[in-house]
């Protein structure tokens, strides 16, 4: 009998799925919100949401490129840093300081990716998806070990 272990298997696919889900949620809420809120608020929400997705894309690329013990691609790291820090943050400054957008929709738009990330992680734990994978892996490894011992 295998003992169940609760583990969270976050891999690169988790980030990709989070970005995709955030994009869909932001677009969906923008369309729905057009009926209830002023257009500039929706535009601010959409802009901040898209900015946060691009920011997360660059952040994940930067972490994958730079934060590793070996084989660091210095050229890619430099390009990513040059795009993320001056360009992306200058865009954020423009979004924050423009007179068209109110701050609350911007905050909500930026927070969408964090909300999606937390809910996805929470639902994985609640549904026990990683637990099932762990059990399947254990069953497969046990099966392989049995086959090896027979052979």
């Amino acid at each position: 009998m295998t003992q169940k272990k609760m583990t969270t298997t976050f891999n690169y696919d988790f980030i990709q799925r989070t970005l995709r889900t955030t994009g869909i949620v932001v677009l969906f809420l923008s369309v729905i919100g057009l009926y209830y809120f002023p257009p500039y608020d929706i535009l601010a929400f959409l802009t901040a949401g898209v900015w946060s997705i691009i920011n997360m894309l660059f952040l994940s690329a930067l972490v994958r490129t730079v934060l590793r013990p070996d084989n660091i691609d210095k050229m890619s790291a430099m390009v990513l840093m040059m795009v993320k820090f001056p360009l992306l943050y200058a865009t954020a400054y423009f979004i924050f300081t423009t007179e068209l957008f109110r701050p609350i929709p911007i905050v909500v738009g930026i927070s969408m990716i964090l909300i999606v990330m937390v809910l996805k992680a929470f639902s994985r734990v609640m549904l026990g998806l990683d637990e099932t994978n762990q059990d399947e892996q254990e069953i497969q490894s046990n099966h392989k070990n049995q086959l090896r011992s027979v052979a």
Binding site: Y12, L59, R68, V107, M117
Partner: peptide
């Protein structure tokens, strides 16, 4: 796994700084 955890943590920390800036 460590890198993905790092990405998520960095995103949260960065968001808090952006809230402070706002």
């Amino acid at each position: 796994k460590i890198q993905v955890g790092m990405m998520i943590g960095a995103a949260f920390i960065e968001a808090l700084t952006i809230y402070a800036l706002l």
